[in-house]
């Protein structure tokens, strides 16, 4: 699905000086695409550093430590520090839901929770509010998650989330392992009528 949330999938297309996000660019006949180059890696690292600087990502005390896609990206792209000043915003942690928690400090606004909630579960509980640096993931009318009338407590958003922003209550440092396979299972079953266990 075309998303265009983070630009970490930037690629080079031969004959064009512009870097384009792979996720929103249509392939064309004869297109020559470079997915890794010194320049791309440099830009990706820059974007990644901005993601880290934007909120409060503290791997050492995170439920997803060791199982985090953001942390893994830092390793893969050779990010050994962040060269921008951290913004240290003051953000909420919503623990009102019976089963799950949402820590906005760890959210990268990728929107996977929103998309899985709308298009896989169909509940449309989650969405983005605001814009730019003020963007937040909300439930219903920006009410505490636990008071949402639409949430089915299915937990798909938790497993779609790449970081420790969405987690199961009761997990502590490094214990939250996401199972994206479950989401793939459901979607494959629905779209291809294949139940691949």
């Amino acid at each position: 699905m075309d998303v265009g949330a983070c630009r970490l999938c930037l690629v080079e297309i031969a004959g064009s000086n512009k870097l384009v996000p792979a996720c929103t660019t249509q392939v064309a006949d004869g297109m020559v695409v470079a997915t890794t180059s010194e320049r791309l890696q440099r830009y990706r690292r820059l974007l990644l550093e901005l993601l880290f600087a934007e909120r409060n990502h503290v791997c050492a005390v995170c439920v997803s430590n060791g199982h985090c896609e953001l942390q893994a990206l830092a390793t893969n792209l050779g990010m050994d520090h962040v060269s921008f000043p951290y913004t240290f915003p003051k953000l909420e942690v919503d623990l009102t839901h019976r089963l799950f928690g949402m820590d906005h400090n760890r959210c990268v606004l990728c929107g996977r929770c929103v998309r899985v909630c709308w298009y896989v579960e169909g509940a449309a509980t989650k969405n983005f509010s605001g814009r730019g640096a003020g963007s937040r993931i909300i439930s219903d009318l920006n009410q505490p998650w636990g008071e949402s009338r639409t949430c089915t407590a299915c937990g798909k958003c938790v497993h779609a989330c790449p970081t420790g922003a969405l987690f199961e209550k009761g997990t502590t440092v490094g214990e939250m392992q996401k199972d994206r396979g479950k989401l793939e299972y459901i979607v494959t079953a629905r779209e291809k009528k294949q139940w691949i266990v």
Partner: peptide, 8 residues
């Protein structure tokens, strides 16, 4: 690099 470069 690799496992030697990890936060947390």
């Amino acid at each position: 690099t690799g496992a030697n470069l990890r936060f947390g």
